[in-house]
Design a protein around this nucleic acid. Structure first.
Lengths: 146, 146
DNA sequence: ACCATTTACATCGCACGCGATTGAATCGCG
DNA sequence: CGCGATTCAATCGCGTGCGATGTAAATGGT
């Protein structure tokens, strides 16, 4: 075998990197219909699952830094989807809460996951296993990264 | 079952999105040692596999737009790793070629993939299957995205 | 009570990433 | 041959994403 030079598609990290972009493109028209970007949508998902979180909570869930979240949350606040306010118990923390408008947006986004699942062409069972594999790889990689 | 509200980790797209960030964090210290960012490293991989590509070729391989590649390639050119020049046969195209320095960098990056594979904690066989699943999902999603 | 340390968020600079647009070169159809 | 359509890269604006740094609040050991 004469010295196979690897291509991008040979790398698991590139597969994930490029698949992420593919999902982004798929979501974009759906999300534009409700005026969100993909990372903003993730914040909304986190808040729909559990309202009233600190910036740090959201960062832990979404694996993002405050330097990413703060400007993003300000844009969502400006859109009227959530409120940001210092916690009186601990003034260092900022509590993020859905507004009525932000909570109501959940129904508009209800069908997006099934649209996207259909687009993958994978069965629910195959998707579940693939997701679990990716999450456990993520854990291992994050563990190794520090 | 009382109305399960999905969390970010329940979404295959978030699993991929966050796993991508995890790989980025793992690669960062490795790549800093040779002065590259992760997307720059991908361009170098593409050129190590096949030298002398157009911007469009690279975009097709890496699934990136010229609006992303042009500034990135200019930075790599400024670093002395590649050259950019209009194709005399077709002046619309820009041919991207490795310099001696850029070609020589391949040996410095030779061990990165095995470092990263070790960090995932997956066997070669499991990684290969996971990669293929992700690539086929990427194809399906890209197909659906247009 | 004091002050060093830690924690939590914000700010800044830089590098993606893409849609929309531009401008130049080429193509293609009559 | 002529000229509108197409192709290819570059530019611009906006939104991430993060490391480094700043700042204010809380903590903890003495």
């Amino acid at each position: 075998m004469p010295h196979a030079v690897p291509e991008p598609d040979d790398f698991i990290c590139f597969a994930i990197y490029s698949a992420g972009h593919a999902f982004n493109r798929l979501y974009k028209p759906l999300l534009e219909s409700i005026g969100l970007t993909y990372p903003q949508y993730l914040v909304m998902i986190a808040l729909w699952a559990r309202n009233d979180q600190t910036v740090g909570d959201l960062g832990e869930t979404l694996l993002l830094e405050s330097s990413t979240l703060t400007p993003l949350l300000k844009r969502l606040e400006k859109s009227g989807l959530l409120s940001r306010s210092r916690d009186p118990e601990d003034e260092r923390q900022v509590r993020v809460r859905l507004t009525r408008k932000g909570a109501g947006m959940r129904t508009k986004a209800r069908d997006f996951p099934s649209c996207v699942k259909a687009a993958t062409g994978f069965s629910n069972e195959a998707l579940r296993r693939l997701r679990n594999d990716i999450l456990s790889m993520r854990s291992a990689v994050l563990q190794a990264a520090d």
